[in-house]
Design a binder for these strands. Structure first.
Length: 438
DNA sequence: ACGTATTTTATGACCTCG
DNA sequence: CCGAGGTCATAAAATACG
């Protein structure tokens, strides 16, 4: 196997990546010395043997996922890691790590629980008395149900790795560089127009990834076309957008990179592109979501629940009324799975109910945020969700690019801005998202 | 300025230990 | 057996010197 940093052969997995002895030693020395090197050639040097530019070699180390496991005296690091995906039990600490679940009796348990010898406590040792027919059938159904959940759990994990693994690790690198190593992402000179274009590109890609993820969820491909179209509801994508990014959108700074240029979409650009109220609300929302303390896999199961939420679109009124179509069944299945996983992770009932309460609170915030985004995403013209007049009742939508080019009369823009702003707070999304299913 | 010797620094193969 | 961290010979770079 090749070293992920330089052209040599890898000799093992060091600091979280397959590298050679040289790159391992180099990374260790860089951490020890704490010296920060700058590249004099634009940060794009090829990492060759021995003579490589230190700045670029270190950047490459970070980008392939090399991390110091424990920084002496830096408790912040551990806190940050654990706040992202706190995971007692179902530990999934990187975007690409996979935790398999298996069925024991009627329970779904992480495979690690078996190897660590806690099997007895989960399954109970033996069942000496013969079962009645009814009980056998009952247990069979229950175990089939568990098996299905395990399959779904693993499929969700697989979908996360495949669809989002790369993106998550890029963002994690961006965040680690800043928070752990105090390195600011080198940013090429750019303009607001470039950032807006990158943001659009990023969102187009994001739509694709969302539906790619949705398509990989067990059950999705078997839906009939009208049901499948409901997976693409615009508000679902919005919820997906924010939840998927929540670990990286902090109050003090954002750590996501966008577009083919991988621009750091930092607070500065956010403030140039949208209202500070929106950013503040977004960041507060993300902080609240992080405080729920869902693990990574729980987060994406939650997203699956959202994806399969039966629609409320007027076009699908008849579908919505029938309670037995597949979308409802799938929604139920994923909700069950989420509950199962939560139940098994939470230490006691109070932790479980706290998590559920927080989830409920999160849904009501989501509605509020949805109102805001209804205004801004069409403004940025990054996706074409529904015709704007359906959301804004015929009001003119201010386009940011128009504002940049001063194509519109500024006074008019301000007026419209204010009116849409007020309007978005008034949008009642309560019929769009039901919390009673969770 | 140039060539050579010496010193300093960075590297990576190998080692130890948990 | 694996990987984090230590050791040390040595390659490479920096500096001194004639």
């Amino acid at each position: 196997m090749k070293c992920l940093v330089c052209p040599r052969n890898a000799t093992g997995n060091y600091y979280g990546a397959h590298t050679c002895e040289g790159c391992k030693g180099f990374f260790r020395r860089m951490l020890e010395s704490g010296t920060e090197y700058n590249c004099n050639f634009g940060g794009k040097c090829e990492v060759t043997i021995r003579a490589a530019c230190k700045a670029c070699r270190f950047r490459q180390c970070l980008s392939v996922g090399m991390r110091k496991r424990r920084i002496p005296g830096a408790s912040q690091t551990t806190r940050k890691e654990s706040s992202r995906f706190p995971s007692p039990g179902f530990s999934v600490d990187s975007a690409t790590q996979t935790q398999t679940l298996i069925v024991v009796g009627d329970c779904v348990v992480p495979s690690s629980a078996i190897s660590s010898g806690s099997l007895e406590s989960i399954s109970g040792s033996e069942t000496p008395t013969p079962l009645t027919d009814f009980m056998s059938r009952y247990l069979f159904l229950q175990s089939a149900n568990s098996r299905q959940k395990v399959e779904t759990f693993n499929a969700v994990q697989n979908a996360v790795d495949l669809v989002y693994g790369r993106q998550l690790s890029q963002w994690q690198t961006c965040m680690d560089r800043a928070l752990i190593y105090g390195l600011v992402q080198t940013q090429p000179e750019t303009t607001l127009e470039n950032i807006v274009e990158a943001y659009r590109e990023h969102n187009r890609e994001s739509v694709t990834l969302t539906y790619q993820f949705a398509g990989m969820l067990p059950g999705a491909s078997e839906l009939d076309p009208s049901e499948r179209s409901q997976l693409k509801a615009w508000w679902k994508w919005m919820a997906f957008w924010i939840i998927h990014r929540a670990p990286f959108l902090m109050e003090h700074e954002s750590y996501i990179t966008i577009g083919s240029q991988q621009y750091h979409y930092c607070h500065y650009w956010t403030s140039r592109m949208s209202d500070t109220t929106l950013t503040a609300m977004r960041d507060e929302f993300c902080a609240n979501f992080r405080s729920i303390g869902l693990t990574q896999i729980e987060t994406y199961i939650l997203l699956a629940v959202i994806i399969f939420e039966p629609g409320t679109d007027a076009d699908h009124e008849s579908l919505r009324k029938s309670k037995d179509h597949s979308l409802h069944a799938l929604h139920r299945h994923y909700t069950d799975l989420l509950f199962d996983v939560l139940k098994r992770r939470c230490a006691d009932r109070s932790e479980l109910s706290r998590t559920c309460r927080n989830l409920e609170k999160f849904f009501s915030e989501l509605k509020r945020l949805y109102g805001l985004y209804c205004m801004y995403i069409p403004v940025l013209d990054s996706v074409k969700p529904q015709p704007a007049d359906q959301i804004f009742d015929g009001n003119y939508i201010p386009f940011v690019l128009d504002a940049i080019h001063n194509k519109r009369d500024n006074r008019n823009l301000k007026r419209i801005h204010r009116s849409t702003h007020e309007l978005c707070f008034a949008i009642d999304c309560s019929n769009r998202y039901k919390t009673d299913t969770i």
